[in-house]
Amino acid sequence: MKNVGSRFLEFVLFLLVLSFISFAFIKLAPGDPVMGMLKADEVVVTEEQVDKLREELGFDKPIYLQYINWMLAFFQFDLGYSYMTKQPVIEELFSRLPSTLTLTATSLVVMIVVAFPLGSLAAIYRNSWIDHVSRLFALLGASIPSFWLGLLLIHLVAVQLDLLPSMGMGTWKHLLLPSVTLGLAMAAVYVRILRSSLLDSFGQDFIRAAKARGLSRKRVFFHHAFRHSLLPVLTIFGVSLGSLLGGTVIIEVLFAYPGIGKLVVDAILKRDYPIIQGYIFIMGILVTVINLGVDASYHLVHPELKRGKRR
């Protein structure tokens, strides 16, 4: 495990690279960004307007100066303005970010609520019917596209039974279907990981030692075996939290949920490049923060790693 200092250094370096990628992105993007900004208004553009805006944006300067200027702005979280709404990109992103994070969190809750009991039961009652159910669940989960699962749920729960709203946001009811869709898709992966990890735990000698001290089954399971099996789960968790963020994009579009994913898809369809650039920036930071968080959680589960070995 690395210390905080080198972590921070890594983070700064990472931000530099990220800034370069974002900058290159807008330079590589097809079409003239100045035209893009002006055209969004759907009026005839004059040569004068173009030159004026170009100068305003500093696009007449040499490219390295542009990059330096851009980077200075970048580190002040100034990512330019959306072509579509003319609002600062950073404001657009930050106004959408909480919805996406909420959806991610609730999906995680659904995932845990489904995967942990099912995975545990599958491991405890190995080769029983519940183990077979978990296997089927995992196989189907890996084969069903999340958006189709969402469509089925919308059709069944929202349209046919009229129990929940199918789109938008606002109340917890709006969150329910998207979270269930995303959570179920994730749970399919974790059920099997948790099961095999738990089976590995059960075979550990220290579990036998704990039983030999007369600890209750519940205590042995939750305080010893389950916690031990969380380490591999956490490792994969770090990777898949990223793909969960990717998954929110589809789900947000499907449920017309105004998160950051819906924003970026709209931006892509309308070629609103500053927004896409901002999305890269935000996702880069989010993924890094997640990885740091996962590292920290190792220490929570395994405090002895921090203490170091005396032997």
Binding site: Q204, D205, R208, A209, A212, R213, G214, L215, H223, P303
Partner: peptide, 30 residues
């Protein structure tokens, strides 16, 4: 009975205790 009337000591000392709990916690648990 186990841990109170009948106690075990095993061969592999590395596996006698759960690695991520302090020794004291595990004694206290018993």
């Amino acid at each position: 009975l186990l841990g109170k009337e009948i106690s075990y000591v095993f061969q592999d000392y590395n596996s006698a205790f759960t690695p991520f709990l302090s020794v004291g916690k595990q004694i206290d648990e018993v």
